[in-house]
Design a binder for these strands. Structure first.
Lengths: 168, 168
DNA sequence: ATTTATTTTCAGTAATTTTTGAAATTTCAA
DNA sequence: TTGAAATTTCAAAAATTACTGAAAATAAAT
């Protein structure tokens, strides 16, 4: 397979992959494009290579910057802004985990805390089922939260090494 | 908070949560409803409690069954089918991980294997950046695949216990 | 200060996804 | 068998989400 075709396939699959993870297609494709580009790109480069509008490009670049996955680069003597993606995949994973934990897991845990305190007699099976379900989810959620915190702080080598021990 | 309000909030949040994870709102809501219901429900119960159409209910129940999250229950002497959800949250998580791994991670790894073999001279920085990115993702992806396999096979107690050790 | 390049915004449009509901099919009791 | 109850299907409609492109805003150069 030629490089050009391989690049297209990577971008397209990364886009499709993203849609299963609550990230829109374009945002994932821009990220993919920057990941495989040796040098920083301008907004126009991105528009051209992905065939998307200026507005779409601009909005999604900014969103990638919010996530910490992409950053602006100023090249001396150049008026235009350039963009480049974090290439260390372990760092990329940690940034994504951190962001989604904050946006999704933490609010969910807060809600569960509240719901667990529902009024009513626990001998009533409807109350019991509700409380047991909520508590069960909360317990596992808290565990996941801690595990992810650990992961976010960890070095890849330490983390992978630790995981490896379990496979023996 | 009263049970009825708490139930509504749980269902609604679980639905919103699901949409961030590539699961549609209704499917997640039906799942939530069944999780907090002490007894199995019929399709009509679900339609009524969630205010959704028969077709929508039916399609999403079937999808939940495909995922292994819900099962049909036949109550003796009853013509109608009843449905109930797996209540053990650890099992639920494992079922979801297993399914998404199969649907998303494994095809991605297969693609990366192919893309890594791209033609061209690795001294060309464009080729090098592409191959390095693909290899990096593949490496981490394989590691994740193994880690998830381990998790799918593990008992909750073992898994949580093991994770706990890291926090000391 | 004025011009020109560049970036950002956002109302309108397009594309995609989800939902409905009525018809078709299946199931089972009589 | 027949037919009533229950389930499934799917084309059309609704709802949601994403994208465009032109205009406004901003930033740099002259």
């Amino acid at each position: 397979m030629k490089l050009l075709e391989a690049r297209q396939q990577f971008i397209s699959s990364w886009g499709a992959f993203g849609t299963h993870w609550g990230i829109n297609r374009t945002m994932a494709q821009i990220h993919a494009l920057l990941l495989i580009s040796a040098d920083p790109l301008t907004q126009d480069d991105i528009m051209e290579q992905l065939n998307i509008s200026r507005g779409n490009t601009n909005m999604n670049i900014r969103e990638l910057i919010n996530w910490g996955l992409v950053e602006r680069v100023l090249l001396s003597g150049e008026r235009k802004e350039y963009f480049t993606a974090e290439k260390d995949i372990w760092k990329v994973v940690k940034l994504i985990v951190k962001e989604r934990k904050k946006r999704e897991l933490e609010p969910m845990l807060q809600l569960l805390d509240k719901l667990e305190k529902v009024e009513g007699d626990k001998r009533d099976k409807h109350v019991k089922t509700f409380v047991d379900t909520v508590s069960g989810i909360k317990k596992l959620g808290r565990q996941a939260d801690k595990t992810l915190d650990m992961m976010i702080k960890a070095e890849e080598s330490w983390f992978v090494g630790t995981m490896m021990k379990f496979f023996k």
